[in-house]
């Protein structure tokens, strides 16, 4: 069992909801990321999703897409992202870290090289937005060998039949995309999410975390009434982008301030 599964099991046992936070590695500058990761944990984040910058982040809305662009101005790569996790692990051995990104950088590094290097650095899982289960076989087996979880997205358009085949490969948690759209979109329908989460529960015992469109304590809380956790990303990335040029400590503190009320909201459930 890796850190990710341990943490999720622990939360379930405690009856608590998972707060999953997303930032882009190297955004707005490389020296900001590590300090922000630690600050997010201190503010109550349970799982860190670290975005791997990509030149063509097709599934991202404008806020996170700009985060990728800012990171790429500093040439921040997949290898550099793995390195940040290694540095994070020197201090924090408990908080699960999942990389989230696109297939091509992983493919360029090589599936096997990626899996062994990421695992050695302390990465617990990988979510590749543009790698559906139909194409994921080869990478999946490398991740398994390296004791990393392969996290899959499910969408409002995913049929129950498709969900069944996705669940077969999925590890860690199911990431349910709350709406038809890109990250940071604004048309969240809580009722529809509840219904879908209930359907997914019939297929799996895996924890279900919901993301896309969760902006604050109120939306996180509403989502987590049915889900096991909430993923918060765009609102953090937006803040970090707006503070470009300021010091790492300041940015990390500002991100922590955004996370605290969300943690509080989730803990009220």
């Amino acid at each position: 069992m890796n850190r990710l599964n341990e943490r999720l099991a622990q939360l379930r046992q405690q009856g608590r909801k998972a707060l999953v936070v997303y930032i882009v590695n190297g955004d707005p500058a490389p020296e900001v990321t590590l300090e922000t990761m630690h600050a997010m944990v201190a503010a109550g984040a349970d799982i860190i999703e670290l975005g791997v910058p990509f030149s063509d982040p097709m599934a991202e809305g404008p806020v996170i897409a700009r985060g990728h662009e800012r990171a790429l101005e500093h040439k921040v790569s997949l290898r550099a992202t793995i390195e940040v996790v290694r540095q994070f692990r020197a201090v924090d051995q408990a908080t699960p870290v999942v990389l989230m990104g696109y297939t091509n950088p992983v493919e360029r590094m090589g599936y096997e090289a990626f899996a062994s290097s990421a695992s050695a650095a302390g990465v617990d899982g990988l979510l590749t937005v543009d790698l559906p289960p139909e194409e994921a076989g080869a990478l999946h087996s490398e991740l398994k060998k390296a004791n990393m979880e392969n996290i899959f997205l499910l969408a409002p358009t995913t049929s129950q039949a498709r969900a069944t085949s996705i669940v077969r490969l999925a590890g860690g948690f199911l990431y349910y995309v709350s709406l038809k759209g890109v990250t940071g979109a604004g048309h969240l329908d809580i009722g529809a999410v509840e219904q879908k989460v209930a359907q997914l529960r019939q297929l799996t015992d895996l924890p279900i975390c919901v993301g896309f469109g969760i902006k604050d304590a109120a939306t996180a809380k509403a989502i987590a009434r049915s889900a096991d956790g909430a993923v918060v990303g765009s609102v953090l990335v937006d803040k970090m982008g707006s503070m470009q040029g300021q010091g790492a400590a300041q940015i990390a503190a500002a991100v922590a301030e955004l996370i605290k009320p969300i943690r509080q909201g989730l803990d009220e459930l």
């Binding site: 097709m58 543009d130 559906p132 139909e134 194409e135 997205l153 358009t157 498709r162 996705i166 038809k180």
Partner: peptide, 12 residues
């Protein structure tokens, strides 16, 4: 070739 897109588009 193949189909490398986010899950939302797979059914479409």
């Amino acid at each position: 070739g193949g189909r490398f897109v986010s899950e939302t588009l797979m059914p479409a």
